[in-house]
């Protein structure tokens, strides 16, 4: 066949595109980056969320916590959270935190990953509240470090603030207790999530009397987040595969807004289709599910130990 006269393939497709500047040799790859900041930031954020929410590597390993029934773990975690809010003593809180770390390690949880997850959240939850609490204006006490000395007392309406702005020992103790409490609480919750399958956790919620429908809705949210996160990452990769040069900031923003709209429409269609699939299998508004399996002896032992420990801590703290 005479390829030059091929009536199907356009002439410009007969050979690959002309090589760009530098000829046909591949460049060293030291030019400027093609992805803008917003693109990269969005991709990193979505990947991080996907890893944090859906990674189930620790859940499947054989550890102490993984062998317990999710219902027992959830009840233990709740009792611990309540007890932590009553404990005043910093040493006790420190001991409890160390205990949680030991249990995490015994359960085969990657210590570094565990600390990273906990300390990613702790500053977010505590920073805004704990930092002002260290100041003499919020918590009076013996000044440890003077931040600023004003000429005179400050008057804010009917309120009078001392002329010295300092970090106080009492403030530091209050903030430390607060940070430690949050750290222990977040650690308990992260440990529960890292050692329990999401579906087990949802089933466990029913022990607390959470209605089936609410649990089901929660599960659907989780599932949609997974599906939509995957879609978002694919959308980003699809764009990246055809990006040859850095786009302008405005173009990036327009693309993000456009994809957000697309995602919204897509999620709406998806929810309609899923609802149809539920109807098709006999759903009539209230999902019926099988009963959970029986409790094991080790679950009872674990719950008794945690309840005893919490009671002892609260009594010691008084």
């Amino acid at each position: 066949m005479n390829l030059a006269a091929d009536p199907v393939v356009p002439k410009w497709m007969h050979a690959a595109s002309e090589p760009g500047p530098g000829g046909s040799r591949p460049p060293a790859g030291s030019g400027k980056r093609v992805s803008g900041f917003s693109q990269e930031a969005a991709h990193s954020l979505f990947s991080l969320l996907e890893r944090m929410l859906f990674q189930e590597t620790t859940v499947g390993s054989e550890g102490m916590l993984q062998s317990l029934d999710p219902r027992a773990k959830l009840l233990c975690a709740l009792v611990l959270l309540v007890a932590v809010s009553f404990v005043q003593n910093l040493w006790l809180l420190g001991g409890l935190y160390a205990g949680v770390l030991v249990v995490a390690l015994v359960s085969g949880v990657d210590g570094f990953l565990f600390l990273k997850r906990v300390w990613f959240f702790v500053p977010v939850f505590t920073g805004a509240m704990a930092l002002p609490a260290t100041l003499s204006w919020v918590t009076p006490g013996n000044p440890l470090w003077t931040l600023h000395q004003f000429d005179q007392e400050l008057r804010l309406g009917s309120m009078t603030l001392p002329a010295t702005l300092a970090i106080t020992d009492t403030g530091l103790a209050v903030a430390g207790r607060f940070v430690f409490r949050v750290a222990v609480s977040v650690s308990v919750v992260v440990l529960l999530v890292m050692t329990t399958r999401w579906q087990g956790l949802l089933r466990a919620l029913r022990v607390l009397g959470v209605p089936h429908f609410f649990v089901f809705a929660l599960h659907m949210c989780y599932r949609y987040i997974h599906l939509l996160l995957r879609l978002l990452l694919d959308l980003h990769l699809g764009r990246r595969s055809r990006t040859l040069r850095r786009s302008r900031w405005m173009q990036d923003q327009a693309w993000m807004a456009n994809r957000a709209g697309y995602l919204f429409k897509r999620s709406q269609r998806l929810s309609e289709s899923v609802y149809q699939a539920m109807l098709s299998r006999g759903f009539q508004g209230e999902p019926k599910l099988l009963d959970d399996p029986q409790w094991q002896g080790r679950d009872i032992v674990a719950m008794t130990c945690v309840a005893g420990l919490c009671l002892a801590m609260v009594l010691l703290s008084r």
Binding site: Q199, R203, H219, R223, S273, V274, A277, M278, L289, L290
Partner: peptide
Amino acid sequence: IQLFCPTVWD
């Protein structure tokens, strides 16, 4: 679309 339960068993 069709699969919406927490586990395959469910």
